[in-house]
Design a protein around this nucleic acid. Structure first.
Lengths: 133, 133
DNA sequence: TCGCCTTTTTACGTTAAAGTCAATACATCT
DNA sequence: AGATGTATTGACTTTAACGTAAAAAGGCGA
């Protein structure tokens, strides 16, 4: 007994529109079953959607995301294919590691700006206290 | 004595086109000086460009990047402004932390796929060795 | 000064990722 | 059966972020 999700359930859960889900389907990123004309999404489809959204948050294009998702389900394949797969994995990993470094730097800078702002807040507070004396 | 960069120097250093730099200028993300009609970028402009590219790698839009860059140079300002600034900082920080988690997960998944692929490679290798006996 | 090269400006084109709108089609409630 | 509400499909539109092409303006070496 497969549990199915309707399109609207998923749009509500992930805060996206039906247009978006149909678009992803047209791009070959998900392929839900049908009952008549209605789309029925399996739990597997749902996790694919999660992967897509995660990829988007990281700034990957839908095409890149598609490639990555296809890596996950890639069939056994022969040596050449496997080599290509390994190459792609290492490429993506490098990208992700770079993003990690970028995030670290940005977080540090945010810390600095925040400190500055807090310091100025404190100054303002001191001024106000002086004026109220 | 200010050291200046020409537009082509920067396009080569960052592997972007002049069109891109002029576009960023039109969007108010950088504003290089001019000598006649020519653009002259200061080291400060250059670091702004670095920030922009870093933001792009993380999937931020140019508008978001602009907002973030403006945070950096934000003038002292009064309490309300500072409060808003602090809010924005914490919002961006949350986003970045989410991206960090997304990256961790993706890296773990890549590890899994890689292990699978390597295992299959090993199997293939074993097969080949058997056939050559 | 001439010719060549680079830069700038202006304008139009393109691509990804949806948004919007209209026409049907199903399903359900009454 | 009729009304109502939700899904689907197809077509057209929009927005961000540039690409591309053409024309004019300097700059510079011979």
């Amino acid at each position: 007994m497969q549990r199915y999700f309707t399109i609207t359930q998923l749009t509500q859960e992930f805060d996206i529109t039906t247009r978006t889900l149909r678009f992803y389907e047209a791009q070959g990123l998900v392929s839900p079953n049908r009952r008549g004309r209605q789309r029925l999404y399996t739990p597997g489809d749902r996790t694919r959607i999660k992967l897509i959204l995660r990829g988007k948050r990281l700034g990957f294009s839908l095409n890149e995301i598609k490639e990555m998702i296809e890596m996950y389900g890639s069939a056994p394949g022969e040596a050449g294919q496997l080599g290509l797969l390994l190459e792609r994995i290492s490429f993506r990993r490098d990208e992700l590691l770079e993003k990690q470094r970028d995030i670290e730097l940005t977080l540090l800078e945010l810390d600095e700006v925040e400190e500055g702002a807090k310091a100025r807040m404190a100054e303002l507070g001191a001024k106000v206290r002086m004026e109220n004396d």
